[in-house]
Design a binder for these strands. Structure first.
Lengths: 126, 126
DNA sequence: TTCGATATTGATAATCGTTATCATTATTAT
DNA sequence: ATAATAATGATAACGATTATCAATATCGAA
């Protein structure tokens, strides 16, 4: 039986309020002011729980995991210049169905990670 | 100046010969018989070098990194039942171009990771 | 409202994958 | 052959994440 907790609420709200795909430590640091006694382990624990409940998304590619409070289907781009992770909202072009046709089996979900340059950096660099 | 090495050749060949997307340790263990003195650090080093030269692909999503000697464009599926990573060969449906249209910037590449059940497990489970 | 059961917490140790260090060995151009 | 230096093997160090555990907070039942 899962009980309510102030810390979990705070983690979830923090993630939903921002669009910068923070790491666990980012979330931890930005909640320290609000909850001084907060522990990093608690943030990790709650991120895992929220992910299992499909309330948030873990963006795994690369080293440190990042999290996204927006669970509506969309993709991500890692900018090679600024390192930030951006959202890309677009049609999925029936990717899962197409893959099932080619591969067989039963496909449940998919994630797309683009790499390149975000509009800002793209302009800056030329 | 990059010098030739028996160990790097062995790592590259091992990766090219298999389609099971091994981890660094998998490669290390399967080469131990051939090169008893091989070090795990050497495997990691060479995997990084080969990846930088675009001779192999690192499949990052999730915890432990896996590697693929097949650099032709294709996608992957992680089977929720057996845990294996399978190749999925299919058209990319102009994903990068479409994303650039929606997002702007300059998109270089993309990776797609499907999750679901491979044909074998799909049949077994029903 | 109080009580008891137990889920959650904070602090920290432990784990795991990966990278850095460094003396030794192998490779390559001369 | 020799000198220059890239690569190796062994292992320490690192960073992210997870496990442990006593103390605390939550919540349903009395």
């Amino acid at each position: 039986m899962t009980k309510h907790s102030r810390q979990r609420d705070a983690v979830y709200q923090n993630l939903c309020m921002r669009t910068d795909h923070p790491t666990a430590e980012d979330v931890y640091l930005s909640l320290k002011a609000e909850i001084p006694a907060l522990s990093l382990a608690t943030v990790y624990r709650n991120l895992s729980m929220l992910e299992n409940e499909n309330k948030i998304i873990r963006i795994g590619s690369g080293g440190t995991a990042r999290y996204d409070g927006n669970v509506s289907p969309h993709y991500h781009l890692t900018c090679l210049e600024c390192g930030r992770v951006h959202d890309i909202f677009m049609d999925d072009a029936g990717l899962c169905k197409a893959a099932e046709k080619h591969f067989g089996g039963k496909i449940i979900s998919h994630a797309v990670m683009f790499t390149g340059y975000c509009p800002e950096c793209s302009e800056k660099i030329g």
